[in-house]
Each structure stands twice: as C-alpha cells, then as structure tokens.
Design a protein around this nucleic acid. Sequence first.
DNA 1: GTGGTCTAGACCACA
DNA 2: GTGGTCTAGACCACC
Lengths: 130, 130, 130, 130
Amino acid sequence: MELSIITGSQVPIYRQIKDQICQAIANRTLKEGEKLPSIRSLADQLVLNHNTVAKAYHELVKDGVIESRHGRGAFVLQQRKVFNKAERSRRLKQVLDLLISEAILLNCTPEEVREEVEKSLEQLHSNSGK
Amino acid sequence: MELSIITGSQVPIYRQIKDQICQAIANRTLKEGEKLPSIRSLADQLVLNHNTVAKAYHELVKDGVIESRHGRGAFVLQQRKVFNKAERSRRLKQVLDLLISEAILLNCTPEEVREEVEKSLEQLHSNSGK
Amino acid sequence: MELSIITGSQVPIYRQIKDQICQAIANRTLKEGEKLPSIRSLADQLVLNHNTVAKAYHELVKDGVIESRHGRGAFVLQQRKVFNKAERSRRLKQVLDLLISEAILLNCTPEEVREEVEKSLEQLHSNSGK
Amino acid sequence: MELSIITGSQVPIYRQIKDQICQAIANRTLKEGEKLPSIRSLADQLVLNHNTVAKAYHELVKDGVIESRHGRGAFVLQQRKVFNKAERSRRLKQVLDLLISEAILLNCTPEEVREEVEKSLEQLHSNSGK
DNA sequence: GTGGTCTAGACCACA
DNA sequence: GTGGTCTAGACCACC
C-alpha cells in the first residue's frame, strides 16, 4: 500500500492516514479481511512518530472500519459503517460553511469556487468508479 | 446585529464571529462604512472574553474587511482589499482540503460533493450581482 | 538565534520579535526550512508570556513567512508568499506615514530624510542579490 | 489656517494636528506671536472631540512650540526648540527600522522603497523652501 | 514535547 | 467610552 503524507497541510497527519486507508478500502486496493501494515513499519515508511499512526488505526477501529487482533496486526473488516445521505449532507455542510465564508472574504465568484472545487475533486476521482 | 455562537463546535469561536460578520457584510446586513459593535459590548452580548472578539476583529482588519479606529471603534471598509488569483486559490485550497478529507471519510461520490457545493453556493449568488 | 527585546519601547514586543525574525531570515541567520525556537522556549528565554510570542509567530504565518505545524513547531517557509504591487504599496505607506510625521515634527528637509533612508536601505541591499 | 485630517491613517488624529501646525509654523503660514484657533472652534471645524484638539495643543505647549495664555488662547512662540542633527538622525532611525522590516517582509527592492519614499516625501516639499 | 484557543484581569493610548 | 497590548494560567489537539 502506498500512502503519501503532505506535511504542510491543514489536515492533521493522522487524519491523512485515516483518509487514505478509507479510500484504499473503498476502491478495493485493500480488500476485506486483508492485513494492514504494522503500526511501526508504516511509521518507519512514512518517517513519522508511531503514535501518529497508532492514533489513525485507533480511530479506524473505533469507526468500525478495521479490527485490531492482539499480537497479529490490524485487518480490514467486512462491514463498513455506512453514513446515510442526510448524515453525509449534514457533515459536508459544516465544512462548506467555512468554504463559503472564505469565498465571501476573498470576493470570489461562484464560478471560481466551482473551478477550485473541481481541482480538489480530482483526488476523489479514483474513488468514483467503485 | 445578531450573532450566534456554538461553544462546543470544532470551529473556534473567533472564527465563527469572523465568518458571521463576513456573511453579514455580504448580504448587506452590515453596510459599507457602518460601525460594528464595540469589542467589549459584543463580548458582553455573547458572554465571551473580550480578547476572543478582539482576535476576530483583528483578523478582519488583516484581511482588509474592516478598519479599526483607535478610541472610536471598528468600521466596515468602503473599499475591500483585492486578493490576487494565486492568493485566492491558496486560501480556498486550505478549506477544500478539509472538504475532500471529509468527503473521503464519508465515502461520497464527486457528484454528491458537487451537489452539496451548489446548494451552499447559493449564498454567494445573492451577492455576486452587485 | 539571538533576539533582544526592549520593554519600554513604543514598538510592541510582539512586533519587535516579528521584525527581528524577518531580519534574521533576510540575512540568512535563519535559513529556509529551518525550525524556529518553540513558542514556549522563546518566551522563557526572553522572559515573556508565551501568548506574546505566539502572536508574533501567528502574524508571520499570516504573512506567509513561516509555517506552523501542529505539535511539531514553526518552520521558515521555502517559498515566500508573493505580495502584489498594490499590497506592497499599501503596507509601506502605513509605515511611511509615521516617517513623514516624525520628519515634520523634527523639521527635517526632504534631503535629510533621503540620506537617512539610504543609510537604512543598506540592510536591504545585502539581501537583494539572491 | 487649513488643516486636513485623514481618519483611516495609522497616525493618531492629535498627532496629525500637531504635525500640521508644526509645518504651518515652519513654512510661515503661522507666524511668531500669531494666535491659533481656539480648541473648540478647531474641534468644530474638523468635526472632532475637543479633547483630541486639546491633547495636540497640550503637547505643543510641552514641546515649547506654542504658549497657552489663560482665557486668551494659544500663541506661536518665538523660539522653536531645535533638534540637533544627531538627535534627528536617532529619532528617524527608529521609524526607519520598522520600514526596513516591512520591506524585507514584503520582498521589496531598495528601488521600490525609494519610489514609495519619494511619493510620501511630496508632503514635505512645501516645507523645503523655507 | 509542540502549537491553538480561551478566560480573567491589568494597564495604556486615543477620542 | 473605544481599541491595543501584555500577563497568568487553563485546557485541548497533535506528534
């Protein structure tokens, strides 16, 4: 599995790891029942503190995405928690409020916001064909 | 002016104040040249420390949205600061990273994100014809 | 890094810190990508409250000079934010108003002001060839 | 006497009054022994709080530029306090340090700073022929 | 350990 | 009265 960390981003590192594992599961790079890399090996690979990776794994366990088997490692679970449409809409709206405020402050046109959204959405494209 | 603060939110209080003032200016609840409530009176009204309000106002000054006049108060600027394209792109990107991160976690399709963006963009439309 | 603070000065402490860090970067005492002292350690060293140092760092972040990484520290940015001509002019004007005000009070001739400006500009020369 | 106040400036209003009176004396618009407008009439004319004008006058008295005669008004003094060259240089340097820091932060060339200085110096020109 | 936010309260400069 | 700065100390998120 290939993960890439952007160190200057607003998104915390543990969240980037979490995001990318979710994405890998969604597009079936990581399949159900498959073993994840160990916390320490992933930390070494990404040159991170192992506590950072541990936090990401811990949240994935809490979210029911992976399962931690003592002494054996972490494994992708069969059942993924699914957010319903209303829940997804509600949670996206929180971030979108920030976006709109920033757009107002910067005096952007709606068109410009759409363009920037499209640019950022490319990261999601690989996830759309699943 | 009516502001509402959610204390338990992820979004820091000073940011909520900043956002709501921006929106008030955008929808012309606050007009150009108009005086904002004083830092301390707004702090009293929202039951906050005055430094929290001061921080919000200070950022608005830095962003060229309002002007602070020593001993007299803060006023909405007549002429907004112009951000260049690169700066607008840079600052939008910071928020968009959060959006994409959330979308990945929620397993949204790009199409669904576009829909939600369009819904939120309506707040911007009302302001774009002026 | 050696900073010196004058507590009785007209110039606020956080501004003195900001200025000296800018100058340290300009004369390459602080290099690109280098880590700044932590907020709290610098506050201890200068016998200041940590919030005062935080305010200086925060402004440097806003001005695109340094980058703050949560839990890791603050770092000199590789690539400086580019201000457009209008913005540079606007911000220089603010300081120049103070200069002219002082020159009037001291009854200086324009020629004398020019001489003093040239003396001070030498600090900028050393940085301009890079 | 014609005074003009810029309300959005960094320079406090009382200081703008002080500056312009000094300048008027220097270019002999106001002559020695001449009566200044009363505090309240000047406050009315400039649409200011009379305390603001009073503060300007009070500092001019303290600096030995004008004299306040109880019940009769304020008058320009014969003897103006003269700053020697070294003193002028020292006081200009304080403000010039701020200018250089800002120029470094904005990544200005020395040439650009000179241009902006020249623009601001035009306010001093009327004072140079005395 | 790091930075980010918030509170409480103080003192100063300006109008 | 207004805003600007600074201190002291708290709690949180991140690494």
